[in-house]
Design a protein around this nucleic acid. Sequence first.
RNA 1: GCCUGUGUAGCUCAGUUGGUAAGAGCGUUUCCUUGGUAAGGAAAAGGUCCUGAGUUCAAUUCUCAGCACAGGCUCCA
Length: 571
Amino acid sequence: MKILALHVDYIRFKPLKKALKNIPELSEKEKKEMHVKEALAVLISIEKGDTDSDKIVQELVKNVKEIAGKVNAEKIVLYPYAHLSSNLASPEKATEILEKAEKELKKSKFSVVEKAPFGYYKEFELKVKGHPLSELSREIKVESVGKEVEEKVDASKLLNEISKTKLDTSKLKENDHRIIGQQMKLFMFHESSPGMPYWLPKGLIVYNELIKFWREKHEKLGYQEIMSPLVNKKQLYQISGHWEHYKENMFISETEENEIYGVKPMNCPNAMLVFKSESRSYKDLPLRLSDTDRLHRFELSGTLNGLLRVRSFQQDDSHNFISEDMIKSEYRHILEICDTFYKIFGMEYSFRLGTRPKKFLGDKKVWDKADKELKDILKNSGRKHTIAEGDGAFYGPKVDIIMKDSQGREWQMGTIQLDFQQPERFELEYTDKNGKKKTPVVVHRVIYGSLERFIGILLEHTNGRLPTWLAPIQVRVLSFTDRNVEHAKQIIKKLGEQIPELRIDADFRNTTVQAKVKDAEIMRIPYIITIGDKEEKEKTLAIRVKGNSKIQTSKLNDFSESLKKEITERK
RNA sequence: GCCUGUGUAGCUCAGUUGGUAAGAGCGUUUCCUUGGUAAGGAAAAGGUCCUGAGUUCAAUUCUCAGCACAGGCUCCA
């Protein structure tokens, strides 16, 4: 607990508005303005460590009495003041302690004891006397004997309290990504961080391959990748407007210096700052700044859903800074990228345009123009799309890419959003042809959407049989008997030499081929090669291709050539 | 966050109307076996029956609270 004791000529305060949820309503008396003269005003912050309320109240009362005695104050005003500490106790605890303290002090001989209401924004005014003892700050701690015992961590007990997450599979389809992910050992969840996937070695291969593909494509299309801080001062989010509208969904972090930081829930504010870091010309536009930084959003617990809705994720994000007359061409450019990407995966999807909502910011004319342009683009594109009138973000219209999961539920994957607002809030500008300063428009766009969700949907659509370039293990070699192990090792070596990036492994266990095939099939390995006496003798490979029980026989060189082609061309 | 369900071994699950009931298969380790494309045989190890409180002589089992997962709402600046 921290206190600041002020000996005042007077203190006047009046509650205005609730600052916290779940705070009881004030009585008529409490609602009124309070004016106390010749008092000791005690500003109080109750902190996390103040667990033993009786003892801490006892200490507080002792201190107040002592200070009041020194300055000859007969009136006491307890004033909850959160700003003395960055490590505040829960409101419940604070209320409890304040009430007890008021009660205790009333038992003493003070003529007046008042307490300002807790959990309200208050206006207040006071005049401090200015003598040497009129301002005293103190930290009040309870020196408890049993404290060391209390703080001793029983790791083993804690391990029982948080464990690996148990999945309730009763309502899931067989091709649910959570089941496939477990079978293929791609990712897991743990109670240590609900809604935040642990990417296991095999899953991270898929993740990184997707990003690699994305990078290759976007580098050629004039995108420039950046990386920016994951934790930012709250001021950044006050500028962007997230603090006001989105704070409840953010993870907040505090530091000792009383500085509040937010863990970033989206990349745009940082991208704005990068744009702003140099003077920009119309010749720089479109300026496409991409990134895949990790984002954290405190999604409601009931909405979490495997990889499809998580609290920690990465997007294949980009912020494209353009001039107003580039909207149409930039959207075309992005829709083309969508085609390229989704064609590769052969997944069904549709577009959904969200137009100007009832509540919107900015110029109606600009909105209408943008809405119309986007409608035209979609109409002329001949792509499957729906229009959701009034469903745009309040800062601009958006085009979403929609896909279905194994239970037929629709999910937003990629999204292309126009933003007229943030460039203004960040006072972005570029110089146009005539030397005039203009504000750019920003297109926020993701193609995969979140990598997490995309992998989830991809697993469900493919039943885990990922295209070979994405498969965590692309080839597995099985030995028929122990006699064939040496030859099998040679095969692996040769394939590895011919295709250096090949992900190949072996199963030389002493068990039947059937059992080994079964395990390899559960892992959805595209190519399963069995090496037996026959193959050794004939110098061939017996290949089980993508779950097909009809075994193909081929020469090593032929196989490696076509495999190499399949992988590098991402077929 | 709300409503409804679920939580037993690394995985999939059985079971106890409160008491010699901590069980199976898979997986793991060891041994036997040397096999032709989704499970060859045997033995062993592996448990805080999600966590905490309560009721009881006795709780994995009943009650309450919490946590997590699932479905549905809501939300998705």
